[in-house]
Design a protein around this nucleic acid. Sequence first.
DNA 1: ACAGCTTAGGTAAACGTTTACCTATGGTAG
DNA 2: CTACCATAGGTAAACGTTTACCTAAGCTGT
Lengths: 347, 347
Amino acid sequence: MADTLSSRSLDAVQGVASIKDVARRAGVSIATVSRVLNDPDTNRASHETKERILTASRELSYTPSQSGTSLRMGTSRLVSFFIPNSNIPYMSALTDSLETAFSDSNLHMILCNTHDDPAQQDRHLQEMMSYQVKGIVMLAAIDTDLLRATLRHGLPILFLNRRPPTGFSAPYVGIDNYGAGKDVAQYFLQRDHLPAGLLLGSKQSSTTFDRFKGFADELAAHGVELDETKVIETPNLSTEDCYAAAMRLLQTTPRPRAIFCTNDFRAYAAYKACRDLALRVPEDVALFGFDDSPMNGMIAPWLDTIRAPYETFGTAAKDLFEKIWADSEDETNLDRILPHQVIIRTE
Amino acid sequence: MADTLSSRSLDAVQGVASIKDVARRAGVSIATVSRVLNDPDTNRASHETKERILTASRELSYTPSQSGTSLRMGTSRLVSFFIPNSNIPYMSALTDSLETAFSDSNLHMILCNTHDDPAQQDRHLQEMMSYQVKGIVMLAAIDTDLLRATLRHGLPILFLNRRPPTGFSAPYVGIDNYGAGKDVAQYFLQRDHLPAGLLLGSKQSSTTFDRFKGFADELAAHGVELDETKVIETPNLSTEDCYAAAMRLLQTTPRPRAIFCTNDFRAYAAYKACRDLALRVPEDVALFGFDDSPMNGMIAPWLDTIRAPYETFGTAAKDLFEKIWADSEDETNLDRILPHQVIIRTE
DNA sequence: ACAGCTTAGGTAAACGTTTACCTATGGTAG
DNA sequence: CTACCATAGGTAAACGTTTACCTAAGCTGT
């Protein structure tokens, strides 16, 4: 059997067999091969013929050429994932989750780094169309003319985390960011974590905005006004920018008792700022993050955070896609709002 | 001009233009279009014809169909990146680096998660051949029959970090792991970090083995023998396994004064174990990692580590590939050993 | 006996490229 | 004036699929 295995591998590789080779070896036409391989229950071949084709295909370890198939079918087995630059933990968690889910359905994922740059996003968009991808997943999409045109054209685009451009009802997978913001506020109120500071990304992003809004609304509902000087936006997710922002925030008076950061990375920067100012976390300044990076349990026990179930985003996305591919007309319920969880490690 | 822009986007998208459309619009045959677009300096078209074709192509925002091109050329603009499961920081750093480098050369990267499983690696290998990828980058490749057959077949496979299977001289990008291991040992000797403990991955992996060997050799060269009970292998990179291994190690007597972990993730697990045993880091137990994850500077100032220049691996890999694609016969010097750096944060 | 259905196949077109080969015109060297 | 070459372009084949359409045999019901 070691024998069969190695000879199979060899066949698989020398020259790469095409459907013609299978047809010749089985003594049938390529049409029959195609029919049998694509639908084993077809009634267009006798049982024996099917067997012959199947073994021939196996012996040559035939795998249909993707270019041939795509050319004929007008679509491929490819999807692509648009992701901004940052290789911060939650993004790679998403990448992982998506790849695994798609791989299960025999789909393959092209990774496109947008670097948060509209021009690069558009370039990639154009290129992905030339691959005839079956769908695109966009994390933190940027609203451009081409994106809107592509959406109108019908290529399924699924939005992750950040909402689709206004006016479009595209599939969306994410969490209830507004609700999560409220949860954080409730926790702050309960622990008397006031005055509160905020370290935000760009409010242009629906994610950031919703988290902020939920937080602010819930505080307001309890009669607590947010101090404008304690809300700092740093669209750029660099260590330097985030650290500087944290420093600025920590030096406002009165010093914030706690800081809500719209992701863990910002909280890490804030942690360093606290240490450099000789402030204890969480005794002097409490930190609240977002995402719950996998290493938090090991090395950031001082951090409270919100966990989004990123490991399930992949299958959620895949399921939505499959729904869309099946009946492209059913526009109902294309959202998946997955449950988040408040993670308190500081008590 | 907003006008031109939006109409371009629209054209780009409604129906997707093929070379035929460009030919019709320019009033020439598709052959001429192909020639002009692929070689602007061709002498097979007059200046005016070239102009007509170029503008027609622009107006339709024509992008050649990848399936058409691949089918004809027998190769694609795709490369793929095989990566084991773990979404640990240094892997996503590599992913990022590769994607950016390839993207610059108008290549696209398919991500293949092997989950460290030979069967999945082989399945993906087979599938990638059916895409006619131009090359494969393998992080932590597993030595299988099919991998060897593929190598013999001539598909360029580049090995990242972990060495190619014995007997093959395939391109490789990595650091001097043996030397880095020695560096760590020297530091341990200098700081009198003895007795030393080790938290390793599988020694099957050339990466782990070299780091370990360098470390052990350097100690031996200074007359220090390694205590076998203080060398623990955890092939599986899960929090639980690593934590348990660290616990076991910390409870050997005499307790190790310092622990060398073959990556930062293991060091994080060891950190948690130390805390749970009420041991101070680095006062009671010093920790040394490997990789220098981006957040270390912010939240793991207690960790010394080795930094590999992962952000340059991408271009190194791309350059090697381009060399191979250009003259497939030049077998010389297909290795890139990039410089590493000892990062000491604990003094 | 024959119309009609089922079964078991084959033929050929089409998808979008690239390129080897052909044609025709004009200019130039002999 | 002829031979030859450069320029400018077209025609058609090939890459690997899938599928609409065709054929032919065997069976069933009347």
